[in-house]
Design a protein around this nucleic acid. Structure first.
Length: 153
DNA sequence: CGTATTTGACCTGCGC
DNA sequence: GCGCAGGTCAAATACG
């Protein structure tokens, strides 16, 4: 469903994002890495090889943005695979959980529409992409790419 | 047929 | 210890 904001027939602005969008950085302090599988009978074998990078003590890359858009799907040029959708108690709109479909790219994205302003969607990124963007010639992508450099410190 | 999306089940942490 | 809230996975389905 690779539909992008520009792909969608918006009615207001040419670009879904206007100068009114603001982004704020959220430093992830507490984290709940429930790497444990949900259903039992899974981690029976001695699969201790799954011990990849365990810098649990390092700062978590978490960036949140608030974008004024009519659509929830903010395509930043990467490929996202939705893996969950839950309703939050503070919002009357469900929250969508996305994950980068790239190999080794465990970047997570979280999209939630604010109940206060249904036209504002909060996008929360977690992690850093280990691959380059394939897309181009995208106004939105441009903005998002700059944003990445901003937070890539 | 392969990949992405949907939806329900299930797990973890926190509060009481 | 149980319930609530939030988060994730996995099987089935839809779509190209």
């Amino acid at each position: 469903m690779r539909v992008s904001i520009y792909d969608h027939h918006h009615e207001d602005n040419d670009k879904a994002v206007d100068a009114n969008n603001k982004f704020e950085m959220i430093s992830g302090s507490s984290d709940a890495p429930s790497g444990n599988k949900a259903i039992t009978t899974k981690s029976s074998s001695t699969g201790g090889k799954n011990n990849k990078e365990g810098d649990h003590n390092k700062k978590k890359h978490k960036y949140a943005f608030q974008t004024r858009s009519q659509v929830d799907i903010l395509d930043d040029g990467y490929r996202w695979r939705k893996y969950g959708q839950k309703t939050v108690k503070n919002s009357k709109f469900p929250r969508s959980y996305y994950r980068c479909t790239h190999k080794g790219c465990n970047v997570k994205k979280q999209i939630q529409r604010l109940s206060k302003d249904e036209e504002v969607v909060m996008t929360t990124y977690e992690g850093i992409h280990t691959h380059s963007i394939d897309k181009s010639s995208d106004d939105f992508d441009n903005i998002l790419r700059q944003m990445q450099t901003y937070t890539a410190f």
